[in-house]
């Protein structure tokens, strides 16, 4: 069921949604969260596709927000999608004129009662997320520094403006790496003395991985720039020998453990929907991320000072 509303308001949108739900045959709602997606005309279709995909795991009301030109009169258009092989429901809002600065006033009445609110900036995370009033509606905020022009700087501004509940997809992308490294130490059980990472200079994920390892292991991690767009390899030197994870291709890595040689293991490059699904599994703050982010900031400050 699709409904398009021109020059409308929140109350009319809410009424149209109740009608659409009835028409779809099931007025029941079992959605578990509201996901606000702040996007633009260019990214909207991909962003809403990803959001809809994760709604299968976390049935959600998806509220897409596109801020159009701030000039002209205030106006609001809405597109509602309910049913049609999707769980949950989606609303796409286009706000114009002075309203573009007050999109939260449209979104607030459309939040599901009581349920958690997550806001996601698929691209163009606001430099300071606190600047975006939509942020105040949400308890979880997802950004993706990898889409920024200079991911490292974007990550830095995330660190400067960190609030509990923030996470960045560059951190989520690291989970398979971190899992392999943690599993390696489960097995090797030997103190780590040094670490080394080879990665793209621009990779924000690499910076977080270095920070996480340094923070957890109390070691220094050397960084070697590579020309691949992602993390190329990680080596942890232990008293028993080196643990290495070396990227082979999109989906696999070589995994080297002391005395056991090299093996191929899955190291999947996950689509954005997969990353979101992981993030939405937990709606409380991610302390481990916060610690890594703070370490990154401190590291950066030290490097700039010297």
């Amino acid at each position: 069921m699709k409904i398009d509303l021109q020059t409308t308001n929140s109350a009319k949108i809410a009424t149209a949604m109740v009608k659409a739900r009835h028409a779809a045959g099931s007025p029941a709602m079992d959605m578990v969260l509201t996901l606000i997606v702040v996007t633009d005309e260019e990214g909207v279709s991909e962003a809403l596709n990803d959001a809809t995909a994760i709604a299968r795991e976390h049935p959600a009301r998806i509220v897409g927000v596109i801020r159009e030109s701030a000039r002209g009169a205030a106006a609001l258009d809405a597109k509602i999608r309910i049913g049609n092989n999707m769980s949950g429901e989606s609303i796409l809002l286009r706000v114009r004129g002075p309203l573009a600065q007050h999109a939260e006033s449209v979104v607030l009445p459309l939040l599901l009662p009581d349920s958690p609110v997550v806001v996601w900036w698929p691209t163009h995370a606001p430099k300071n997320p606190a600047d975006d009033a939509l942020r105040g509606l949400a308890q979880r905020r997802l950004t993706d520094c990898a889409t920024a022009k200079v991911p490292r700087n974007a990550l830095l501004s995330q660190a400067e403006n960190y609030a509990p509940g923030d996470t960045d997809l560059t951190w989520t992308r690291l989970t398979p790496w971190r899992a392999l490294l943690a599993a390696a130490l489960d097995q090797v059980q030997s103190p780590v003395t040094r670490g080394a990472i080879t990665a793209s200079r621009t990779s924000a994920s690499a910076q977080l991985l270095i920070s996480w390892l340094e923070g957890r292991l109390g070691i220094e991690v050397d960084f070697t720039p590579s020309d691949t767009p992602y993390i190329q390899s990680v080596t942890l030197t232990t008293e028993l020998g080196d643990v290495s994870v070396i990227h082979r291709d999109q989906n696999t890595a070589n995994y080297v453990l002391p005395g056991l040689g090299s093996r191929i293991v899955p190291l999947e490059h996950r689509p954005v929907a997969g990353l979101l699904a992981e993030d939405l599994r937990r709606l409380d703050q991610d302390d481990v991320y916060a610690a890594a982010l703070m370490h990154f900031q401190a590291r950066h400050a030290k490097a700039s000072a010297s």
Binding site: R178, A182, L185, D186, R282
Partner: peptide, 15 residues
Amino acid sequence: VNPLRDDQDRRLPQI
């Protein structure tokens, strides 16, 4: 105690 593991770190799967 594996220093890379933390009860707070609920993203890490057990392998």
